[in-house]
Design a protein around this nucleic acid. Structure first.
Length: 140
DNA sequence: GCCAACGTTGGC
DNA sequence: GCCAACGTTGGC
C-alpha cells in the first residue's frame, strides 16, 4: 500500500465536508499541476492519504482512503488531461499535527510537505506515515 | 530554446 | 496583505 498527502483549503473543502460525504466519498478534483497529477495517477484503491488543511490551520486533521482510482476530472475542460480520484474519510486525528510540529521534527525533515511546500498531492514514505500517525494519535 | 513577465499557491 | 517559490506563457 502506498501513502499520500493531499491538501485542501478548509474554506473550500474541509475535513468536516469530507466526513459529511460518508462512504460515497468526494471527487478530489481541481488539481491543475502536472506533478500532482502524476501522483494522483499512481494512487490505487485502498491507498491511504493524510488530509491537510492548508492556509487555515496548517495541520493534518485526518486520514482518507482512495475509493476510486484516477479518472477524468469532471471539473476540467472536455479532453483535457486532468484527473481526480475519490476519497473517503477513514478516521480523524485525535490530535491534529501542525506544520510547525512537522518542521521541528528531525524524523520528518525530508517530508515533501516541507521540501515542496506548494505541491498539493504528494507521496509520504512508510516511515513518515507511521511517525505522523503516532503524533496524531491514530493507528498506522 | 531562452528568459522575462506574470499568475498562483501557501506560509508568514 | 505581503512575498517567496514555482509553474506557465509569450516575445525574441
Amino acid at each position: 500500500m502506498a501513502y499520500w498527502l493531499v491538501k485542501s483549503e478548509p474554506d473550500a473543502f474541509s475535513w468536516d465536508d469530507q466526513v459529511k460525504r460518508g462512504k460515497k466519498g468526494e471527487p478530489w478534483s481541481g488539481v491543475r499541476n502536472h506533478t500532482a497529477k502524476l501522483n494522483l495517477m499512481k494512487m490505487k484503491t485502498g491507498d491511504r492519504a493524510f488530509f491537510y488543511h492548508s492556509n487555515v490551520g496548517k495541520e493534518i486533521v485526518g486520514v482518507v482512503e482512495i475509493a476510486r482510482e484516477a479518472y477524468s476530472d469532471p471539473t476540467a475542460e472536455e479532453g483535457s488531461p486532468w484527473v481526480c480520484v475519490d476519497t473517503v474519510a477513514v478516521e480523524p486525528f485525535k490530535t491534529p499535527v501542525t506544520l510547525d510540529q512537522m518542521k521541528a521534527d528531525p524524523k520528518l525533515s525530508e517530508m515533501a510537505l516541507i521540501k515542496f511546500s506548494r505541491l498539493s498531492v504528494q507521496p509520504v514514505t512508510a516511515a513518515e506515515w507511521k511517525h505522523v500517525c503516532k503524533l496524531g494519535g491514530v493507528k498506522a
